[in-house]
Nucleic acid binder design. Structure first.
Lengths: 210, 210, 210, 210
DNA sequence: CATGAATGAGTTTTCATTCAT
DNA sequence: GATGAATGAAAACTCATTCAT
């Protein structure tokens, strides 16, 4: 009969390596998916790239769908955690600074997760009901957050003349397009602060001279 | 031996019916694709919906890919034809009016081609190299057009302080997001003029009070 | 534009060859199943034995299950059609003769369908819910038929002292076992009339001398 | 260095626990197999139900087949031990009484081993060569025993007019069918003595009035 | 030109068995 | 002797495309 701690040790070691293996497969799958796309990637490629057997893959993930969804959820969670409310009380950090911080954070997240972001932008639409729903939900969250902020700002007189829904769509669409151009379509680095500043300036002050 | 004009007639009739048949298949494919998506639509569904045999389908289109790409090209051509240069000469129609017209036209086009637009937004990414290239190209065209216009406007002093690339991305992204929300995600009608006006106002004057 | 009868001809020819192909695949599947058993037979073996491609098989049958169930249903239908009510009216053919005829018919059917019968007896249990249900249903039908006949015969005083359920089970079980021994377990021919007579004699008069 | 008896003790304890472990796994496997059937039961289910690791299972049994065959052999041995020769000497217990006893014993055995019996009747056919052989062998044994008994009885004039092979098949088939109906298909209890009596009466005296 | 039966490479997934720890 | 992660052969099934009629 093995001693208690021996069992614990085994179990712990097992769990550690299980987690490690799982993470390893996810990491490689992320790379392969982002290089080849979801449909062009077969489970065979996944397992041979990860250097494990077919069955091993299925011990850790229920299906090709499942690992893909998990990868996407990871990024969406990352992004969601960067949406923080803007504090409009007088004592707070200036609104523009707060906005800049949020945008910089979002851009940082996607820059640091280029492969996932690419998948998200290139593959994650029309692929899978669950993914679509999650994506739509995140987009709606973002839109709702911006719209509500605009409402408050309107009420406080901080902004004016806004068609809230349209303006919210403009803000969200601008971010998506920037991510698309700066992160998805190219590998070239860019200055986050400059971009964030320019976006905020664009949306707050518009193109016409004042 | 048939007479000359009889042959001509046959050929013409043949060609007419060829074109008609082709158009009919495309029309039905458009419907089916936009209802079910590219991957979820099999050639079987296409041919049975069109009421032709599998082989017939392949006499008109090289592959499932091919017809899909053709449908997308059609829409992109439609959209492209709506991008017209803004005339900034003093004698011209006021710039804001010109912009409004362009945006209204683009929105009209996508509203009138909801199924295709849906495919374009929901399916046409990460699906097929050729499609990706075309989509990217169109997006770049739009971006380039907006950026060049901004350059000119900057030079003329009509707009100020613009980070051209970022602002162009904001404009393009705003349009994409609006199309996405207003046309792709819902069937509800909306007032094109109001939306176009709000977009232009947003981008020209910004959110802050002047 | 093809003439009416040309279309009809094509369609008819098509249907003929479809039916023929279907029957051919069924026939070969029957042989392979009865030789190797259901589980030991893969679709690959089926199609290579039939000399058709995998896809062809699936054009005619939904699944491996489906063709198997169809084969079994064929035999069960055969057998069911041989269960005919016994006419006990005075003017009728003598009861014993009627029973003999029914039993001879059943034995003939199974003898003429040895491969299917073998599958039915060796494979068709615990394999598939639908098959189980059908088999159970047929067995119950047979049992019910015998039991009802016994009830009537009891009422008419033709038989006596019967524990109806047990006797019905004895009759049905006897038939099953005979089929098992004479048809399933061996290829040797036997005299149907002799066996049928012996069975009837056994159940009607019993083993003890009178 | 351990003392002799200490080693013996270890070995004995080891063997005891080996046997106990083995029996425990068999017992649980019996339950799971009879609930779900052979094919529907995976080794995973077996080991998780038994609370042992996969590898442990394979230390006690060569394969999934092996444990199943062993379970069947157990039941067949049980049943075989209940077949005892009928003593026809004048001084013996009356033949009918002896037959009744044998039948009651067999029914008791299967009633007391419902799970195994169910496996035997529902699964153990066409599953595995070895199992098939064993089942066939037992069936033949039973048949042979009944046939020889009939031969003797014929010679002694106790029974008359018997087509020995057919009558033996009737007797064996009747038992199988009764077991099937009373034990396999239902959980309801029944009066063994009544059923045994009815069977014997049926086969000895037949259905016709005397 | 139209037809639709035939094709077969390719996909995802399962699960009995092994073996390093 | 116990463990359970890893294995990979093998299975069922799909569907875009071809080609004889």
């Amino acid at each position: 009969m093995p001693r208690e701690d021996e069992i614990d040790g085994r179990v712990r070691r097992g769990q550690e390596s299980r987690e490690a293996r799982r993470a390893q497969i996810k990491e490689i799958a992320l790379r392969v998916f982002s290089e080849q796309g979801y449909h062009a990637t077969s489970v065979s490629e996944l397992v041979s790239a990860a250097g494990v057997a077919r069955g091993t893959f299925y011990q850790y993930f229920d299906s090709k769908d499942a690992i893909f969804v998990e990868l996407l959820d990871d990024l969406i969670d990352h992004l969601r955690s960067n949406i923080v409310g803007v504090d409009l009380s007088e004592s707070a950090v200036p609104m523009e600074e707060q906005l800049r911080t949020t945008i910089v954070r979002i851009l940082e997240t996607v820059v640091n997760n280029r492969p996932l972001t690419r998948i998200l932008f290139r593959e994650a639409i029309g692929l899978h009901e669950g993914v679509d729903a999650r994506m739509g939900q995140f987009n709606d969250e973002l839109h709702g957050y911006v719209a509500r902020s605009l409402q408050v700002a309107l009420a406080l007189g901080i902004v004016t003349r806004a068609h809230v829904e349209v303006s919210a769509a403009c803000v969200v669409g601008s971010l998506r397009e920037l991510v698309n151009r700066l992160v998805v379509a190219t590998d070239e680095p860019f200055d986050l602060d400059v971009v964030a500043g320019a976006v905020i300036d664009h949306h707050l002050r518009g193109l016409l001279p004042r």
